[in-house]
Each structure stands twice: as C-alpha cells, then as structure tokens.
Design a protein around this nucleic acid. Structure first.
Lengths: 312, 312
DNA sequence: CCAAGTCATAGATCAAATCAATGCAAATCA
DNA sequence: TGATTTGCATTGATTTGATCTATGACTTGG
C-alpha cells in the first residue's frame, strides 16, 4: 500500500469547513488574496490561511499565486463552479423562505421589446403569479435601446431585449435566439417568390422599425441600400406588421411574430432561410445582486425555465 | 419606520455560518437534534445551539420541536431543499476536482434491461466517455429482477430497469416512461386490424419474455388468459422481437424497441393506444452515497441530462 | 535598483463553538 | 395514574481554532 495523501476523501463534504468555499469565491472574484481581505474587512494572512486550509482538504492547489494576484488552476475552476452553486443556493434562502412563509408583496417592473414570442417567458409569468398572487407585475414596451437605459437608471428591475454591446452594469441571460425575415404582403409583386439578390429590392417601399431596429439589420439594409424609400414607420413590431400586412411596404419582422400572418397567407417571407438574420434576446437585470425578493423570485423563475429548455 | 427584525437580510449569504446548513440537513435527516448529535459525535446542546443560530439568522423557526423529534415548517422545507443543493455541490467537489486534475481511471459496471431506447442515456454515455476516456465502461444485459439483485449484491454499481416494489437499499431516479404494445407479424390474421376485446386472443400463440416480463403485463395476461399457448420465449427484447417478426407468435414489446419494425411494415400494433401499459424505467444505484469517482461522475452525467429533459 | 505591490509564516489573542451538568416537558409504559 | 424514558433548552466552564499583528520573501514596474 502507499502512504500518500488519500486518493479521495469519502467524507469530504462533512469534514471541510463550508465557509472556506464562500471565501474561495470571494478570493477569485476579488482577483487576489489581499484584495479579498480588504473587501471582507479582515487581514490578508487570515484569507491566506483559509485558502491554504481549503487546498489542504481537497489535496490540490486551487490557485496559482503571482505577484499580480491569483489565477485558477483547472481544479480551481471546477471548484469555483461548485462553490458558486453553493453561493447561489445560500443567496436564495431568504427569498425562498419569504415565499414559503408569508405572502410576498411587492412589485416587479419590467420593460421589454415588442413582438416577443417566448412560451417559456409566458409560462414563467403565469407560474410566478400563481405562486405569488400578491406581487404586482408591470410590463412596459419600448425599443431595445430604451430597455437598456431604463434598466441602468433603475426605472425597472427586469428587462428583455437585444443588446449590441455588453454593458458591465447589466446581467445578461440568453433567453432565446430570434430570427427575422423580410416580409411582403399579398399585394406585392414578390408574393410567392423568393428573392436571391437583395440589391434588386433597393427601390421598394420599406416599413422600418426606427429605434427598435436590430443593428444587424441596419447594416444589412445599408449594404444593399434597402429602405431608402421609407413608406412606413412603427417602433412597435405589432404595428409594423400591420403596416406590412396592409401593403404599405416590405419590411423585416421576427419570424415568430409573423408566423400566424404567414399561415393565414397575408404575409410572404421573401428570403431564403440562409439569409435570415439571427441574434440573441436576453433577460436583463442590473448587475448588483441585492435585488428585492419579488424581483429575485421572478428572475429565478425565468432562469429556471430557460435553463431547463436550453439544456435539452 | 418599524423597528422589528429586518425584512430581508441583503447580506444573508455572506453573514451566516455556512456550516449551519450542513448541520441543518443532518438534523432533518437524523429526525431530531439528539439523533443528529449522536451521529456527529458531539453533544446535544451543541446541535441545539447551532439550529438556534441558524433560525436567528433567517428570522424564522425552521423546525418544530416535539417530544418525538423535529418536524419541518414550511420555511424549513424551503431551507432543506436549498441546503441539500449545497450539500450536493459539496459532495461532488472531490470528484469534479479529480476529473479536472488527473485523468480519472476506474470502471463503471452497469446492468440494464434489454431493448432500452433512450437518447439521453446514450448521449450521457457518449459524453461521459469523451470526458473520461480512461474509464472502462461495462454493460451487462439481463431481465429486470437480476438487475436489482446484481445491484444489491454489489456486482455492478449502476442499473437501469424496472422495479415493482421500492427497495430501501437502492436509489431510484426516473429515467423515462416506457410503453408497451401487443404486436403481430405480417403473417398474422390480425395484421392491419385493431383488437378491441383482449379476450378473443386467448387461443393465440404467444411469445413471452419470461423473467423479464413487466408485472403489469403479467397481470394483464392473466386477466385475459393470454399466453396460455406459449410458442416462443426469449428474455431479451431484441430476440423476442425477432420471434414475433417471424411469426412465431404475438407478444408484447416496448413501443420504441418495435418502432423501426413497425415502420418497415413487419410488425403491427394490435391494441388501441389507450390499452398500452406504461411504467417507469429507473436509473438505479445502491443507496449509500460513498461511490467511487468513476461511478459518481457517470451518475451525475446521466442525472444532469434527464433532469434537463424532464423539466422542459 | 528601489518602491510598491503581491503572498507566506510565526506567535499572541480572543471570540465562539463545544462540552458537561441540570432542568423541563411530553410521550410511553406499568 | 404515577413512574420512566425520551427529547430539547439553558447555563456556565472550557477549549478549539480563526483572526490579528508583525515580519519576511518574492515579483513587477518605473
């Protein structure tokens, strides 16, 4: 037999000090031992010792120490992921207990882009309300830029929309991948035909969505000079669809938002599927984790569902 | 303003002693404070005080104390669920770190019922092998009763199969719901026709699966006196299917296992869908949680996938 | 090459968890 | 019904072990 360190401690979970795992997350997030110590209002050697204790228990070095800070080893990354799970559980406790104990009151204000089609999101709202009938839910609709601004300024707690650049002050959780198509109405000469060269559409009347237009589509239009003749404008997808359906012009719409009109034969997708621009729609919130219980529970409900969906 | 206890502690997760959560699980699992104390080799007041500290932090009573032991409150149940999540994370740490650090060696032996069709299970095996190429995977096939016995006797670590009664020594994780149908071959007079009264089949030649037959089907056969004339027997579903396809007799098969033969027009489902018996197929393991890393990682991989699937 | 940052080590200190002893209340049993 | 057992709470003494202060070694960058 060998006398080296035990291969795997069967009773690891019941022997280690679980607080070390919280400290570990703090160290990694702070980027260093000293940095973590300052944030936690204790001395550097204390944190250093804690990390050492943890590493002793797992039997591996978790962080490489440099003069610039710390860096996770492979083992450290695995550890970090699990420790973050633990932290997340701990963080949810007050909220879950509030939900179990008292009837949670409060308000969840959200701002979303128009024309959103997502059964997971709809179901999340439904089951959230079932569980927390006393929480007021408020939804405002606006172009995606305003969604981001409203979030940053604290006018709303939750947002759903698109973002071209990643703002550090916000949390992004991918909700779904939306695709758009270029549609025309029955009165259009193109109805029933696919367009292969986009350039030939440059003199067509266009319905635009103004501020709400995804940047990817703005670029697409610019490249092929589409929409120089603007015959209609609506920042709400539903209204833009109305304009397109009634022949005011052709225009881009999310596929799912146009689906039923296509089925009814009132809209026609002009592009081959390969040309359909696609982009992520995110669930958004401010980055600070100190959310009130109502918002926290709503966030968790949506996340839970999209995670489940996303995995399969 | 009110001066009562803080509504919700924003910094709960960073203030509480996380070890209290482990202790909480121990108390609930042990069924009482004293019981937990004995298991943990410490004195009863110590545990009592720990629980008190935890309750002070969350601001609610989590357990009702009786003379018979303890009982969870609603808040306690919410707490328990989250604490168990934390425990699970902690428990996985040595295994995940082993996976990240060294190339894990070992063997996963499993025993499964024949004719199992499950893409999640297949994918779990595939990705498990991708991640752990050095782990040997062994699969044996047997009727479901033998699967259970092999597990209990420690001949294998993982099992997949059906169980009529719940054995305390085993863990059950629902993997999928299987349905069976009664099939006949093209040479049968029934090919192309649905049978509404099972009784009329009592003189038909039957292919049975012996030890592997689900109890529900045994009962069904007994009630309608099916299978009194046994023309074929195979404990392996694939072989039973072969016998049925080639007209040796009619017999029950899992729908998914018969699917391709039905599509080829070589098998015919004789019953209305309402009559199809359905039952759970479980992923099985011994109840003790002290599994070796190879087995633990495999178990986690499968669980992760079926949980994701199950939720959507 | 020095200044400023990093982390590690050693011994002292102190807070807090644990223990041992006791008391109380409910359930069980004679 | 009274006695006994079982289970939890309280109290004050004890001890464990995490934190602190002080110091040293090392790396980075000006």
């Amino acid at each position: 037999m060998s006398d080296r360190a035990p291969l795997i401690d069967k009773k690891f979970a019941s022997r280690v000090d679980w607080n070390l795992m919280r400290t570990f997350v703090d160290i990694v997030r702070a980027g260093g031992i000293g940095a973590a110590a300052r944030q936690l209002n204790r001395q550097q050697p204390s944190i250093s010792a804690a990390l050492k204790r943890l590493e002793e228990h797992v039997g591996t070095t978790l962080l490489h120490r440099h003069a610039t800070g710390v860096e996770m080893t492979a083992a450290g990354k695995a550890m970090m992921s699990l420790c973050e799970d633990m932290l997340e559980s701990a963080r949810m406790m007050p909220h879950q207990i509030a939900q179990a104990t008292k009837r949670v009151e409060g308000i969840v204000r959200m701002q979303i882009v128009s024309g959103l089609v997502s059964t997971e999101f709809d179901e999340a709202i439904a089951s959230f309300h079932r569980r927390n009938p006393a929480i007021h839910v408020e939804i405002r609709v606006s172009p995606w830029r305003q969604v981001l601004d409203a979030l940053e300024q604290g006018e709303v707690e939750i947002g759903v929309g698109y973002d071209s650049s990643v703002r550090g002050s916000l949390m992004y959780e991918p909700l779904l991948v939306e695709r758009q198509q270029l549609y025309c109405s029955r009165s259009s000469a193109y109805f029933g035909y696919r367009v292969s060269r986009l350039g030939e559409l440059k003199d067509q009347d266009f319905v635009l969505t103004g501020e709400d237009e995804i940047e990817q589509i703005t670029h697409l239009r610019r490249r092929y000079r589409l929409g120089t003749r603007v015959s209609g404008l609506a920042e709400d997808i539903n209204e833009a669809r109305r304009l397109i359906v009634h022949g005011i012009g052709i225009g881009f719409l999310p596929i799912l938002a146009a689906e039923s009109e296509v089925a009814k034969g009132r809209l026609w997708p002009m592009l081959h599927a390969d040309f359909e621009p696609s982009y992520d729609i995110f669930l958004l919130a401010r980055a600070e984790t100190a959310r009130d219980t109502a918002t926290q529970l709503f966030w968790d409900e949506v996340i839970r569902r999209i995670r489940a969906q996303h995995r399969s």
